[in-house]
């Protein structure tokens, strides 16, 4: 036993080396964010004298944008779950005609380039007064999470034993009632997964932030970063500090919901 474990150690070392290479940019982001002279030639490989000036500047410039991103992301999660959960249940459990067409439409919808949607939405939003507008962004951003949430939730709800739902139905509960008091509680984990991913999709959204806001009155943090880097950067510390702050939800997701992530990656792709 012991020898086989020792023989595995080189693989662990190799794995750590691979990971160090893959995560170096993340390290560099954190390192630069703590340098007092981010951008000067003599920045070091380790923040020996960590400075939080970068974060102070980042919060000064971007705290409003972070808040905008938070509101838009939460709104988009709520909207997509309200729309996706009943649809996923219907697609999983009801024997409706056209279901396969709806499923194919969902798969194709996931593949439509965002720029196509943005191009058409811009003109429609312009007429409807939804440009530079938080509800407008919430609606557009839900387009990345809704097809994903439906496919993931459907995969899970399909595995709920029919007897559970039928028992309630025989006792006189309506479809809606059975859905709310049985299906939703049972599906809690998959709903959390879909919600977390939906949050992350919207939080990371760049295309809609870039195209559907014009005036600067509504600026998600992704657009804030873009504004930083699209001119020549003198001091990278605040830019990297903003990048670190914008990465917090991803890190939280990785810690809180680690076991669902692989499921999420697969649910969106293969199912």
């Amino acid at each position: 036993m012991k020898t086989s474990r020792i023989r595995q150690i080189p693989n662990t070392v190799l794995g750590i080396v691979f990971l160090a290479i893959m995560l170096f940019p993340v390290y560099w982001m954190i390192n630069t964010s703590l340098q007092s002279n981010g951008g000067a030639v003599n920045s070091t490989f380790f923040p020996y004298n960590p400075s939080f000036a970068g974060y102070a500047q980042a919060l000064h410039d971007q705290s409003g944008n972070l808040l905008t991103s938070l509101i838009v992301s939460l709104g988009s999660v709520v909207l997509s779950l309200i729309i996706a959960a009943p649809a996923a249940y219907a697609l999983a459990k009801f024997k409706l005609r056209w279901i396969s067409i709806v499923l194919i439409a969902l798969l194709i919808a996931q593949m439509i380039p965002g720029i196509v949607i943005a191009n058409a939405l811009y003109t429609a939003y312009n007429n409807l007064g939804l440009l530079n507008n938080i509800p407008g962004l919430i609606l557009a951003d839900a387009s990345t999470s809704i097809p994903f949430a439906i496919l993931i939730l459907r995969a899970f709800m399909g595995s709920i034993p029919p007897s559970l739902i039928e028992a309630a139905r025989v006792d006189g509960a309506s479809h809606f009632r059975a859905f709310v008091s049985i299906v939703i509680p049972i599906s809690r984990n998959s709903i959390i997964t879909a919600g977390l991913f939906g949050f992350l999709f919207t939080w990371s959204d760049f295309i809609f932030a870039l195209t559907l806001t014009t005036g600067g009155s509504v600026t998600p943090v992704t657009l804030g970063i873009y504004t930083y880097i699209s001119s020549s950067v003198q001091n990278w510390a605040p830019v990297m500090a903003t990048a670190v702050l914008s990465s917090i939800p991803a890190i939280v997701l990785l810690i809180v919901a680690q076991k669902y992530i692989a499921a999420g990656a697969l649910g969106g792709a293969v199912k």
Partner: peptide, 21 residues
């Protein structure tokens, strides 16, 4: 699971750090 980090970061944040690197 740590390998997933680059995939979860906002793309524009990754672009920023790569532009700097």
């Amino acid at each position: 699971s740590l390998l997933l980090v680059p995939w979860l970061l906002p793309l524009i944040a990754s672009s920023a750090v790569w532009k700097w690197m």
